[in-house]
Nucleic acid binder design. Structure first.
Lengths: 231, 231
DNA sequence: TATTATACTGAACATCTGTTCTATGTCAAA
DNA sequence: TTTGACATAGAACAGATGTTCAGTATAATA
C-alpha cells in the first residue's frame, strides 16, 4: 500500500509518467517504456497496475493495441490534485501559463537542462492568450540576457517563447543544445547534408559547423519574441 | 499528383486520418491502421507516404517506435486550411481583445485617424492576457510595415501594443501624430524647451525637430512589441 | 496457524509494428 | 521510344508489444 489515495506509489508514478510522456512525445508510452521509467522491466507488473488504474477510472485502455492508453478526466484531476511539490494555479480559460524555465545568453551560452521540461521547477510563468497558438502543450519561455543577439532583433530582457520540438525547418531559429560543449544557444539551423550549420543572425559573425549531427540537439524553435517597454 | 497543394490525394487522406484518429482515440494510428483506413493494406505504401509528409514538414516521426507519429503545426494548419472553416469564439475572461487599428510605416508614415480609437472599425484584434497590463482600457495595436525601424529592433510584421496616452516621458517611444503632415510615425520623443525632437532609433537617421509643439500629438506610447515567427 | 488478497518476479508466446527489399505501373520529359 | 521520377504492390524480417501463465512474497484476516 502506498498513500491514502488508494494508489500504490508505483501506480501513482505510472500515472504521472503516462501524462508526462504524452506531453513530451505526443503519444502514450508502451508498457515496457513505462516499466523502464518506474524501474521495473517486467511488463506484467505494469500490466497489472494499469488494470488497477483502469478500475480506478483514472485511465482508459484499448485492449491489445500498442500504446492504447488514455488519461481520463479523473486521471488528470488526480494528477493536479496530488502534486509532487507544487502545482501552479489553474489559469483562467483561454490563457496559457507558459513556464519561464530560465535564461539564455546568446553570446556566452549557458546550459539548460534538456530532461526537465515539465512545469515543475518553473517559479515564473508567462501568460498569453491560448488563441495565439494552435497548440500550447509544448511551449516554454526563456529570458534573453545580453545583447549578443541584437542583430536578430532580440536584445537583453526580451522573452522568447519556444516550442519544444525536435525538428526544425531549414533557416528556422532554434535553441540548440550542443552535447559536447554542454551549451545552449539561439541560432538559425541549416541541415547541410551530414553536417549542421548554426548561423548567428548577426551577419558579421561566422557560422558554427557541426560535423556530427548527433551532437546537435534541437531544444525547440522560437515561436514568438516579446519585449516589454516602460510600464 | 493529386491537388495543387503538392500532396497526393492519398497523402492528404493519410494526414487527415492521423488527425482524426488522434482526436478519437487519444493516440496516433499505426501504419497498418492507416492503411486500412485509406484502403491499402500495404505498410510500405503508407511508410513511403509518411516519409513524404515528413519531408513536407506536416508530421514528425520517432523512428522505430510504434505509433511514433506527431502532427506538426504546419500539418494542423494544412488541415484547418482545407475543410470547414471555424468560427472564432468569444474571448473568455482573463483576456483582452486589443483592437488592431491598422498599420504603421516608420520610414514613410501613413495616416491613422486620430479620432476613431474605439473598438468599432477594428476587424482584427490581438488577444493577450489581461494580467500583463495594469490597465487595459486604453490599449490598441498597430502592425509595423517596412524595415525602417530595424535598428529599434522592430521590423516588418511586428505588432506593437500602444497605450493611448497624451503624455510620455523623455526618451520613451511613442506613436506621434503630426498635424500638418497628417502622418503618424514611431519615434522616441524628447521635449527640449519649446521644441520637440523626434528621434528615430536608427542613429544614421536625422531627428525631426518640431518647433510648434501643438503640431505634435502623442497618440500613445509603445508598451510591448510582439513578433511571431514560423508557425 | 491457515486463508485470502494483493503486489511482484520470471518466462514465454502470439501478434503487432516499423522497416527493408524487390518488382510493377504510371506519367512526364528527353 | 527510352529514361527517370514517383506512387504502388507484395513479401519477408527483426524487434517491439500486449498478454498470459506459473510461482513467490508480504500483509491482513479468520
Amino acid at each position: 500500500m502506498g498513500t491514502d489515495s488508494g494508489l500504490t506509489e508505483r501506480q501513482e508514478k505510472i500515472l504521472r509518467y503516462i501524462y508526462e510522456f504524452g506531453r513530451e512525445w505526443g503519444f502514450p508510452p508502451s508498457i515496457r517504456e513505462i516499466g523502464a521509467a518506474v524501474g521495473t522491466p517486467h511488463p506484467s507488473v505494469i500490466s497489472h497496475n494499469l488494470k488497477r488504474l483502469e478500475e480506478a477510472g483514472l485511465i482508459e485502455r484499448e485492449p491489445r493495441r500498442s500504446r492504447g492508453i488514455r488519461l481520463t478526466e479523473a486521471g488528470r484531476a488526480f494528477l493536479s490534485a496530488t502534486p509532487t511539490e507544487m502545482i501552479p494555479p489553474e489559469p483562467p480559460e483561454g490563457l496559457v501559463s507558459i513556464p519561464l524555465l530560465g535564461e539564455i545568453v546568446a553570446g556566452e551560452p549557458i546550459p539548460v537542462p534538456s530532461s526537465d521540461f515539465s512545469l515543475m521547477g518553473a517559479d515564473e510563468t508567462v501568460e498569453l492568450a491560448r488563441s495565439i497558438f494552435r497548440d500550447t502543450s509544448d511551449l516554454y519561455a526563456l529570458r534573453v540576457r545580453g545583447n549578443s543577439m541584437i542583430d536578430a532583433l532580440i536584445h537583453d530582457g526580451d522573452i522568447v517563447i519556444m516550442r519544444h520540438t525536435r525538428r526544425v525547418e531549414n533557416g528556422e531559429m532554434a535553441a540548440v543544445w550542443l552535447r559536447d560543449r554542454e551549451e545552449t544557444t539561439l541560432k538559425r539551423v541549416y541541415w547541410e547534408g551530414r553536417r549542421v550549420r548554426l548561423q548567428p543572425a548577426n551577419p558579421s559573425m561566422k557560422p558554427i559547423y557541426i560535423d556530427d549531427p548527433t551532437q546537435v540537439e534541437i531544444q525547440g524553435k522560437v515561436v514568438m519574441v516579446i519585449r516589454r517597454l516602460h510600464g
